[in-house]
Design a protein around this nucleic acid. Sequence first.
DNA 1: ATGAAAGCGCTAACAA
DNA 2: TTGTTAGCGCTTTCAT
Lengths: 333, 333
Amino acid sequence: MATIHDVARHAGVSAATVSRVLNGRETVDPALAVRVQSAVSALGYRRNSVARNLRRRQTTLWAVLISDIENPFFTSLVRGVEDVGRSEGYSVVLCNTDEDTTKESEYIAACLADKMAGVIISPTSDTSDVSPLVEAGTAVVAIDRELSQVTLDTVLVDNEGGAEQATRHLAERGYRRIACITGPRRTSTAIRRLRGYQRAIKATGLTADKSLIRHADFREAGGYAAMAALLDEDVRPDAVFAANNLMTVGALECLVDRGLTVPDDVGVVGFDDIPWARLARPSLTTVGQPTYEMGKSAAQLLSGRIATPGRPATRVTLQTELHIRESTNRPPA
Amino acid sequence: MATIHDVARHAGVSAATVSRVLNGRETVDPALAVRVQSAVSALGYRRNSVARNLRRRQTTLWAVLISDIENPFFTSLVRGVEDVGRSEGYSVVLCNTDEDTTKESEYIAACLADKMAGVIISPTSDTSDVSPLVEAGTAVVAIDRELSQVTLDTVLVDNEGGAEQATRHLAERGYRRIACITGPRRTSTAIRRLRGYQRAIKATGLTADKSLIRHADFREAGGYAAMAALLDEDVRPDAVFAANNLMTVGALECLVDRGLTVPDDVGVVGFDDIPWARLARPSLTTVGQPTYEMGKSAAQLLSGRIATPGRPATRVTLQTELHIRESTNRPPA
DNA sequence: ATGAAAGCGCTAACAA
DNA sequence: TTGTTAGCGCTTTCAT
């Protein structure tokens, strides 16, 4: 591998000049610049970013820590981050924490060791410890879920509002025994979506029944199991609000397996859109989130924080949108 | 940030000793090791990987270059890579080329600059140029698609066989005018899957008609447009084989929009499974691929090549599996 | 078993 | 504008 010194020798200039040409900051005599360029291509020189990063004491890398790479919600969000990041000269690296606190802290340590310029994290838990990053002065933005210990730039949707709207919609369609399958207690989204559900139950005058509420793991199997448990109760629910996309799918599969019809026997609303929702039968009523925009906002916050480390933390809250489809299509009471 | 020298000073030993303790290779006096460890935690020392990688002239990073991060086929494959990589001490970094040759070559350059220990690539084209990596001695493995210019370790499925089986299945179910929506000509998978389709058409004695073959872009919109074009022909097909998951979805949506019934009016088989296939109505007959295994195999090949750079290139071909569901469910002729 | 010293390839001060 | 020099933080000879 050719180094800058090889290029310098070949072009008959100093290493500093080669560096100047390559980085295009300072002005260099055009004739020299040309000689450097041709030496670069003659030798097939390629910059060693590792050395560069060490010397500059910074990288142009962003890490995105998400909890499930197979969940379309996260991949779409990553696209938003990527587009902004690339346009500002950053490379975006994906890390899959798998809802696993251990993996998460390993990745946080790695981000530190690798001197990431910025980190966007969807924490596995409200109490995830990002303090090593914060203390080291790394720019951090939380997305989708909040962190309780520290005040960070954060991008969220109106989880309570979205959940309330979804639940109200079920009530308006005449469903009376509405269940809620929410996520793990350790995540802010699960808590807030449950709260929105509860608010709607109260507002519509339906009886709140604790046995209608289940906490699952935001995964398909968890949604399936929670639905099964709800159906095994003495009085089964006639509708269910599921707090994320995968659990909705699980719940639906359970209903199919039990021979129950949606929306006639049971109405279903999910949080998060599902790709190819048009193909599912019945098509699914969902609380849609602006995933791409969320990623984009987070990236913009990160970029801003890198530029101005001391600025106060911002919280961006985006709106959800209820997409009414067939799974709640029962005539109003 | 504390450095190794700070730790050394604090523990009253040399930097070399700290390094030895931290890397656990050579033997160090247990008493010293303890002093080093406590100095490490006292100072909150964290390794600087950038410096380490520069000095060691190698990293423990793998890059995976995939063409669509939102395609579940690729994300599932990445899981396989990740699991093997992590178990061997590598961090896996994802790069999204977006079927864009420019992005792809930028990422290849970045892999080189960042001194990646290995690269797993699903090339955007048969003629994608990975030679910079190969020449620099970086371990490279191709996955899902072949490269024509160079001989690399490669993980594929039996694309021709899978496509032939799918097409034969349609013929056996009594479909007579079977169309094929395949991918871009520049990708080996598109070519091979088309070839398998053609082989089956010939073998079953159906008439081969060029107007039944369409090349699209492996995306949903492309599949939709190709299906629309097929339906606009004078004689419309009574079945379609689509060469990947997203195009299958597009084709199906087109059929729905045109008011055609699957499988009665048109039979459909897709290549690649589709998540939540059970929810789609009709459920989809697909050529399933062992995605996780593919990722795992690629990772094992990569690991082997890093260990033994000179060894001859291996090609792993995994089998596909036809999953017969409702979308081809027409009684045999 | 331990320490001293060199240097990975680059960029940023500083001098000229 | 250009060149000289030092050093980012680490690992690895080589001596001891």
